[in-house]
Amino acid sequence: MTPLRPARPEFRNIHVFRDLTTYRLPAAGWVSILHRVSGALMFLLLPFVVWMMDASLSSEISYGAFTAAFSAGLGFVPGWFLKLVALALIWAYLHHFVAGVRHLYMDATHKVDKAFGRSSAIATLVVSLALTALLGAKLFGLY
């Protein structure tokens, strides 16, 4: 006679409000979702990138106004908010790049086992967040 084991929860259709708080997504799942979020964020912030490129390269006067926008603000938008938007753009680019390199490496070497997926996902998160912190410190004038 075999002892009865308690039934494990079975998630077929995850309900956003009921199941999402208890569902534990693996690190590779987080990296995959964040890869899509970072791509969407870069797409949505494309007008901001075009404005930064135009303002920084047009002339010396526009470059001065561009740098002043990050310290004094631009219209009703404070400078710290522009820096936060730029920091979000920095994170989106770095995460998207590092996660893309991870996907390309996995495709090229056919490393698709669970252990490598977990370790490379954690490495992706650590590297992208460390680089974001480093460039964010430069953006906010810490060095």
Rank of each mutant, 00 (worst) to 15 (best):
F140Y: 10
A108G: 08
P6A: 06
I33D: 00
A72K: 15
R8L: 13
L41Q: 09
T132R: 06
P26G: 08
A130Q: 03
H95D: 03
K111N: 08
T67E: 07
S119Y: 08
V126K: 10
A7E: 10
F66H: 13
Y105P: 02
L25K: 14
G100C: 12
R24D: 12
P3E: 13
L139M: 02
T2E: 12
L4W: 03
L142I: 07
T109S: 13
D107C: 08
A72V: 10
Y93H: 07
A121H: 08
L57M: 14
L87P: 02
L74A: 07
I122G: 02
S128T: 10
G141Q: 06
D113P: 10
A65V: 08
I90L: 00
A69V: 00
E10R: 05
L139P: 01
A88T: 11
N13S: 08
F76E: 09
P6Y: 01
A123N: 07
L20G: 01
F43D: 01
L45Y: 09
Y105V: 15
L139C: 05
L25S: 08
V50K: 02
L104Y: 13
H96I: 10
F11R: 11
S58C: 11
S71T: 15
S120D: 04
A88N: 07
L34A: 03
L129M: 11
S59K: 13
A137G: 14
H103R: 14
F70D: 04
F66S: 06
A92K: 08
P3K: 14
F140V: 10
